[in-house]
């Protein structure tokens, strides 16, 4: 999977520690997964690799670099657009805390 990763960040101790002017681009310090209620699970037997989910994910968490599509659960918010748009119903939304059976 090739998705941006969270970096370790030490909060400034005094006002001089805050950046003046520009700050680093693409600087992630926190995951966004905490507000997810349902997580998408891809059934790779059904998936035909049309990349529709990759295209329409508002958060860009579906990675196509590997052999199979992978989901970055650190930043998936569980909106379910991928599952709704999937033409072959290969994505199920599973409630957090419950097992994805099969």
């Amino acid at each position: 999977m090739d998705r941006p990763k969270v970096v370790k960040y030490t909060p400034p101790e005094c006002v001089e520690d805050y950046p003046l002017g520009a700050f680093q681009a693409g600087h992630l310090v926190q995951k966004n997964a905490g507000w997810r209620v349902f997580r998408p699970v891809i059934d790779h037997d059904k998936c035909i690799g049309c990349l529709r989910c990759f295209l329409v994910c508002p958060d860009g968490v579906i990675d196509k670099s590997g052999e199979k599509l992978e989901i970055d659960y650190d930043f998936c918010k569980g909106c379910g657009v991928c599952a709704y748009e999937c033409k072959v119903n290969a994505i199920r939304m599973v409630k957090e805390g419950e097992e994805a059976d099969e």
Partner: peptide, 18 residues
């Protein structure tokens, strides 16, 4: 989607789900 790069340049934002 096939022509599109796998790299993300806008990632980890706090927009509402969907």
């Amino acid at each position: 989607a096939r022509d599109l790069t796998n790299s993300e340049y806008f990632y980890g934002h706090r927009a509402c789900a969907g």
